[in-house]
Amino acid sequence: MENDATDDVTAGPVPDNAPAVDAVGVTAEADHGGGLSFHPLDQFIVRPLFGDAGAPVHWYTITNATLWMALAVLCVFALLVLATRGRNIVPSRGQSVAELAYGFIHKMVEDVAGKDALRFFPYIFTLFLFILFANFLALIPMSFSPTSHIAVTAVLALAVFVTVTVVGFVKNGTKFLDLFWVSSAPLALRPVLAVIEVISYFVRPLSHSVRLAGSIMAGHAVLKVFAGFAALTIAAPLSIIGVVAIYGLEVLVAAIQAYVFTILTCVYLKDALHPHH
């Protein structure tokens, strides 16, 4: 288990009187004990925002996940509602960014999935904005990254999967199954290809969700590992340079993963609307 591997890298004497574990739960040992300890996965712990740190997490409990998702919603509101308040013909900076995002996703949906997919534009734009802002907000130090959790990305991906499948059958009926029957291939190969196509179709939500959660989680864990080395005087300069470099990479990843998730949604939607190869 990664946990064991990482948690056991606690070098140096850990003081017997348990070190102060603050509400955020980050490793305070390094500061006090002078030892080296890695807890790169602690940043992903879901904990109640109010009350005791150890209180049980019910489905309705307001947690750090709630906070950072709510901040993402607020950012969306600020960008797309507050910034466009002026409805200017010549846009302000904020309005210009909002229009850019709108135009970007609108064009992507139209180009990739076709004009008839524009009905789903609000849905796809919602996914894009949520993932984008959740990813970017997660890069604030001490924040929580909702999109690093497979529970979150799996729901996003399954929602896309279910929507696409339902739309495919409603719009094309049984012709939707043509998607799996590659009519351009030789007849003998078609059953084999059909099996492969069906498997790849059902693997979609898995890859769709794990790609996002995995890359966000890995990036943040690596950041924490590099940061952990900063406690060692010898390694500190290298580790700080590493943190800066990885952070830059993560900024890129945050945007790219939002883009990838969105464009894959469009590709899947295109399959549902036009299932012919």
């Binding site: 948690d7 490793t27 996965l41 992903f44 740190a53 959790h149 497979i150």
Partner: peptide, 8 residues
Amino acid sequence: GNAIGMPQ
């Protein structure tokens, strides 16, 4: 207060 296994 440390994570046991993957919090995910």
